[in-house]
Nucleic acid binder design. Structure first.
Length: 290
DNA sequence: ACCCAGGCGGGCG
DNA sequence: CGCCCGCATGGG
């Protein structure tokens, strides 16, 4: 028997949120036609269906097992449903480009993901493209994640493998799954997270402290650390600058002139402040589709 | 065939 | 320091 649960979702688009290249979306399943997403939550597979309008709709939650309050709370947290989008939009719609991005992808939320998962996902993402990022992430999940069994005893998905589950995976194994030159990073990060660095202990710390610690991991630099701070720890002031964001900023605000990463960080910080991370997500996704 | 992708580390000047 | 290059792999 499936319990269902209804969650109000104002100014929310499951489609834009899911498709906009964030960690959960690297390995969860999405059915665009039915506005339906399934993702592993512990040993359960949660399904969220988005009903109604972007401005004033709701999500219907179901599960391979029981839907509890914890399940609903997890979805709200992951989709950042408590964010005050009116205030955020007001702050970041500073110009025509931003207003156009918001208009185009209204309801796109940042997601808040597990720090470890986010770290692995964005390690895979470096110097890579969306299709391959999804392919590789799904490979790792299906090969090393714990099987999720439904109430009929059927295996329906895998959970995201934790650090311990990846601890015995070798560089050679990673290469088999298409990770390429990132294999050595994945191996080393799993090792470090099993031994000296507890990613969960960084929760609640400041943005700069989190970033500094993340960058001690092998293969994690400025950009990936910002992504993890933003989408794994919810630090909305983080402003990851990848090739798309850089290109789009230069084109939109600097007449196509090349600018250093540092200059662009300062620019974003002054312009969008504590919501720079949200601005970045809209710049990234809109810029990519220009 | 050739180019690029949500970069990073290391080596050289 | 800052700049620059190689890096695995698959899709356009």
């Amino acid at each position: 028997m499936r319990m269902t649960n209804r969650i109000d979702a104002r100014i929310f688009s499951l489609e834009h949120t899911f498709e906009s290249g964030q960690p959960l979306t690297f390995y969860a399943d999405f059915d665009k036609e039915h506005r339906m997403m399934s993702y592993p939550n512990g040993s359960h597979l949660i399904t969220a269906i988005h009903k109604g309008a972007v401005d004033n709709g709701h999500i219907v939650l179901s599960s391979s097992h029981d839907v509890t309050k914890a399940t609903a709370d997890d979805l709200k947290k992951r989709m950042r449903l408590k964010d005050n989008m009116r205030e955020i939009y007001k702050t970041i719609s500073t110009d025509r480009f931003m207003r156009s991005a918001i208009n185009q992808y209204k309801g796109m939320r940042l997601t808040l993901n597990d720090p470890w998962e986010t770290t692995i996902c964005f390690t895979i993402s470096q110097f890579n493209n969306m299709k391959r990022i999804r392919l590789i992430t799904k490979n790792l999940v299906s090969n090393y994640g714990k099987p999720i069994i439904n109430q009929n005893g059927r295996m329906i998905a895998h959970s995201f493998p934790n650090a311990e589950q990846l601890s015995n995976v070798t560089k050679k194994d990673y290469l088999k799954h298409g990770t390429g030159f990132r294999a050595k990073y994945l191996e080393s990060i799993a090792d470090q997270c099993n031994n000296n660095i507890d990613l969960y202990k960084l929760q609640g710390k400041s943005y700069s402290y989190i970033k500094e610690n993340l960058m001690q991991l092998d293969g994690i630099g400025d950009k990936v650390a910002d992504c993890i701070a933003l989408m794994g720890y919810g630090k909305l002031e983080a402003f990851p600058i990848d090739t798309w964001v850089k290109r789009t900023l230069e084109k939109t605000y600097f007449n196509g002139e090349k600018k250093s990463i540092e200059k662009l960080h300062n620019f974003a910080n002054e312009k969008w402040g504590n919501y720079a991370g949200y601005a970045q997500q809209y710049i990234f996704w809109h810029g990519m589709h220009l």
